[in-house]
Write a protein that binds this DNA or RNA. Sequence first.
DNA 1: TGTACATCAGTGAACGCGCGTTCACTGATGTAC
DNA 2: TGTACATCAGTGAACGCGCGTTCACTGATGTAC
Lengths: 223, 223
Amino acid sequence: LSSTRRPSERRREDSRPRRPHHDLSRDEHKALTRQALLRAALRLLSKNSFDSISLREVTREAGLSPTAFYRHFDDMEELGLELVSEAFSTLRDMLRSARSDPSLVEDVINRSVEVLSDHLEAHEAHIRFIARERHGGVRRIRAAIAKELAEVTGELAGDFAVFPLINKWPDEDRFLLANLFVEFMTGVAGAMVDAEPAARAGIAERSQRQLRLIVVGVTGWKP
Amino acid sequence: LSSTRRPSERRREDSRPRRPHHDLSRDEHKALTRQALLRAALRLLSKNSFDSISLREVTREAGLSPTAFYRHFDDMEELGLELVSEAFSTLRDMLRSARSDPSLVEDVINRSVEVLSDHLEAHEAHIRFIARERHGGVRRIRAAIAKELAEVTGELAGDFAVFPLINKWPDEDRFLLANLFVEFMTGVAGAMVDAEPAARAGIAERSQRQLRLIVVGVTGWKP
DNA sequence: TGTACATCAGTGAACGCGCGTTCACTGATGTAC
DNA sequence: TGTACATCAGTGAACGCGCGTTCACTGATGTAC
């Protein structure tokens, strides 16, 4: 009996204290709680789609009372939109650092897929969320993801200027290629996220060969 | 007052009579009701994702009492799986007739996208359902869609034998190309389904140009 | 530095609602004779 | 063909449950003096 949990002990899902007893300011503490809600939602979203998880589930998973939610977000949709911009913020950080990586220019085909795999391993929940909600059941979230992807595509079209071959293509063709590349990579990410971890290396290899075929198309392309 | 609806008149969503008074057999009537449930679910699924619609919503939309559902399906997941096989049944009918269409061999690039557009116009709800649930929140439905897509990919790899260029490729490379093609087309379908109808022609044109780039890659590919 | 007051993140009770599922039922259709 | 009985698709009431949201509250943190 002495080892049984007392029912009054609420299960806590994170280390954020309900009542601060340490050196955090009120604002810092609030920011931590907000993060706890976002993390909790992301955890639930790896199993279910966004429009099927409830506000109460999120607060329960975060170790808060349901009403605490309203101190941080108006509703679930607002939290969802924040997850979108959070996911793309880290994704674009990754793209920025990739841009200054000389190995990527030397071996776009293999390195692109490798960079994607690495990012996926580090931010799996974010990528799964994007793959799931890209065509999901919530219009505003679909729209937010589409907007971010369009921006990434635009930037990528510019990046392609470093390749002598593509350098002289008209803007329209560069955009065409950037869009194909983004769609392809999105598909690869979606496949990897749904696959067993053991199957991911195989998907990566296949994707590299497919990307090679596309690059052959690029070298033979008449703009 | 005389024009107001009496509250006892339940809104009916289809023409299937609650109590048959005509020449349908019991089995025929049951099959119609089953169809009414599938149709109703598909209608709801164009707005929301599968794991957020309820059994009661479906029966309400079909004009039935909630309990009638259990005469046709054990639970919602069984209905969802039936929608998957229904969607792929019509899709594969389409692919079968496309296979015997000489215009497709003459002009794969443009005709493939046109055939997809036509199918999408005729079966939009089915295609949207597939695009939405392919990476959606219900494991068994994702698995069912993945299985169907894998079979379609396998058949397509065989179809490619009609092209002299690909004819001599090893099986592995043909599968690689079929997979790329299916992923590409799936992406196009997803984009079209999410886009305003007015924007679809533009997506079709862009996809044709991208497909042309891929075909350039095919012509230059060393197996 | 100390005190008095304002702020506000998080609480817990309460609400009305839609949910999935059970149950005994009804009455038209199907079948055995 | 007519009758008596079996089948079973669809019903409506009932259940316990989790939901989103409101409200007045508590008590630690922040601030004005």
